[in-house]
Computed example of a mutant assay.
Amino acid sequence: MFICLYRRLNFVLIGLVLSTLPALSHEFWIEPQKYQVESGAPVIADLRNGQNFSGANQVFFARRTRRFDVTQGDLTTAYQGRMGDLPAFQLSQAEPGLLIITHETAPQTITYETWVQFQTFVDHKGFVDIPKQHQARRLPSQGFAESYTRYAKTLIAVENGEGSDHFQGMETEFVALANPYTDDLSLGMSVRLYYQGTARGSAQIEIFERGPNGKVLVFLQKTDSQGLVQVPVKPGHTYLLDAVVLRPAPQSGDPVWESLWAALTFATP
């Protein structure tokens, strides 16, 4: 019992350290240990934070979680994690069908000590007009803060994996318009991006494709006027889709910017 407690405390301490490194760890996603599981088998998934579809596992913290849900069909239930759980999501069993996990973090804050750090971020995420907005708002060029919130979703096939994804009501969210485990993906995976309940057009989508050998390819696409993007996919690969909203913070003072990060993960048989 002492050893288990010691390990759990270690996981908590590791999570606290990792959570202080948002500037170095960009994407946040849900990564199932298996994207396809048998009926009655456990469903286990990690919360990950990192870059290039590789990152550290995050322990479960209730105070840093606004929402953690499990959806199958029309039924959505809140997931009850335990403080320090690693993996963060552990479901003893699930019914056959498509299982959707959604996770929304509580807002956290990052401070940009230099303008170069901020410029690198906005360039990477395709926000070409943000530097002009920053100057027009007469904001400082260093030592300013940004609040960020993560909205992650994953699709898991239990047994046959039949079912469909649907909008879960997060402020920004990907919705898969095809089931990657049952549908024909020869023309790609159709996905729609939402922001505040409305399809978000002309948004940059960063797509991470991991092959069976672990190699990751990264490419960019933009949604059309209806918020749609057709993601080319390959059999036997796993995918992470990432899109960011960057807007002025709702209240004056610090932080001065607010970012909302949508993520979707799935696999292709």
Rank of each mutant, 00 (worst) to 15 (best):
L260F: 06
H237G: 00
F174R: 07
Y112M: 06
F219R: 13
Q33G: 09
Q90A: 08
L91Q: 10
G163K: 01
L75V: 12
H237Y: 14
D85W: 07
G161T: 02
L91A: 13
T265L: 00
V231A: 08
W257C: 01
L246A: 13
L187G: 12
I130D: 03
L177A: 11
D224M: 07
G163F: 01
L217W: 03
F118C: 05
G197H: 03
G161H: 01
V216Y: 10
E113D: 13
S54R: 11
V244I: 15
T111Q: 09
T77W: 02
G211P: 03
L260C: 11
I30T: 02
H237W: 02
P212D: 08
F266S: 05
A267Y: 01
T265Y: 00
E173F: 09
I44E: 01
E162V: 08
D165A: 10
P107L: 10
F68P: 01
E206G: 05
G211V: 03
W115S: 14
F53S: 08
Q93G: 10
D69W: 12
Q196M: 11
G163C: 07
R66Y: 06
G161S: 03
M189A: 10
W257S: 02
L246P: 08
E95L: 12
A78S: 14
F174N: 09
G84P: 06
I130P: 03
G163E: 04
A62R: 14
P269T: 03
S190G: 05
V218H: 04
G163P: 05
I130C: 04
L91D: 03
R137P: 00
H166T: 13
T120R: 12
S147K: 07
T182A: 14
L18A: 04
Q135W: 00
